[in-house]
Amino acid sequence: MINFQYLRTTTAKSAIALLVKDKNAKFLAGGTNLIDLMKRGVTAPEKLIDINHVPLKQIEQIGNKIHIGALASNSAVADSALIKEKLPLLSWALQAGASAQLRNVATVGGNMMQRTRCSYFYDTEMPCNKRQPGTGCGAMEGFNRMHAIFGASEKCIAVHPSDMCVALTALDAEVVVANAKGERKIPFKDFHRLAGDTPQLDNNLKADEMIIRLEIPMNNLAKNYHYLKVRDRASYAFALVSVAAAFELSNNKITDIRLAMGGVAHKPWRLTASENFLKGKEATLSNFEEAAQLAMKDAKGFGGNDFKLKLAPNTIIEGLNLAKSKV
């Protein structure tokens, strides 16, 4: 047997203390991805630190921000009356992810930490620079229908699979992380990394750190928003392309806008150029179309995913259309 030690703790402080003691320790929350990875032989932690009893499940408004604990379940956040009222985009994105059963156990922190679903990453008989640096990228010239069109490196063209993270990127969330010395904040858009030369690293969380909570500033984006996920079946499938779109309208002019895409890059992909273009403009189809084209400036296909070069801008346009038509 590949034995591992199972530990359980009830405070963040002790969890961090246990984490730093052992180089090959991992936190266990919902386990919906980690256990699969262990079964497939992709990862073999020597210690599993069960943090499910650490009291980090809060969903609350504090001042001008909404705080969501790292261990709040995906379904608790999606179904929260506060989130539905103030941050409905986040609720929609969560509902688009996984299945009801998975959402019930998967946590916010775990959702952020989930690994790519690239088939080559999961099959230990295949090359994968993310799983085993230096072995090559199986997807580059293989099956890459699901893969990145933005920011891919020569080492890795995998995508981050989360829906929730796309909405959080759009909503300017901040991630509060802690180590033994204290807390720091990471803007959500900087939490995940591009693959670059180190595809084995998915994000900028340090080895001695733990995700504590999210802080999301209040906004006026609860009226015109939409999370549009295009996938191969109606539920329980990863995005081919997804778009989180939300804007604030004043006299039919866009005063605030957020646009982010999923299924297109190694991290949730914020569409800053498109946002800047639309800000101050009218919410018209032709403006949406131009914004969508701007978003595609640096896109590149790898064969199997070339269709995303067309699907992505279409999905942006339709996401904006649906956000606009929301009443």
Partner: peptide, 25 residues
Amino acid sequence: SIIDHRYGRYINNNFADYHVPVNAD
């Protein structure tokens, strides 16, 4: 059922990636 012909191995050999219709379909 998708095969990577360079290796002769199935790519989507699980229920997440081999899509049977779900209720919503």
